[in-house]
Amino acid sequence: MFALSELENDALIEIFNIGVGQAASSMSAIVNEAVHMSVPSVSFINRAEAARLLDGKSAEPAGAICGVSQHYEGAFSTEAILMFPEDKSLEIVRLMVGEAVSQKELTEMEQEAMCEIGNIILNSCVGTLANIFQRELQGSLPQYHVGTSDEILIASGSLADTVVLMLHIDFLLEKHQIHGYVAFVLDISALHDLKEQINLYIARAMGQA
């Protein structure tokens, strides 16, 4: 299984914290409230493990995950997916929109709000990564999915043993603490590229590059 050294892990977490920090700043401008987001940890696991991780967090059995995915290409290729348990997605949209979300599901307009939230967070994470690695990428517009974690991850076109870079996300708004994930589906060459870029970044940090 792909793994990073402690320093490489530290660097990656710091980069993503900067990314979600900027996303939180954008979101707080939308709601006019303090919004905080952080990435306490990252892990590299295969798709089957990723699905199990998400199912453990869902309030309802086997199902009900909301996902927003975007595809990125260029210097490397990845499918990035923001995921929350469905009931938490309702909570986030309700908090961001400031009105009661009446049904148990998101209406079409509310799904669009969820898409925008995904768009902000994913662009921020990948953008920070691309900037720090000084690479050029292009991205797609967000797509909304709802289903089991397995269905959402399969929709990204990956195989069961594809490596997924999982970010744990802590989202805090108006004293509501919500935990979610961002999954990056990466192929082997992208993973090695990532490791190489992180090391270049660390070398620059230590004045060696």
């Binding site: 920090g21 707080s28 401008a29 303090a34 919004v35």
Partner: peptide
């Protein structure tokens, strides 16, 4: 030091 610069901060 913060990446999240908002009014409250």
């Amino acid at each position: 030091l913060t990446a999240n610069v908002q009014a409250a901060t």
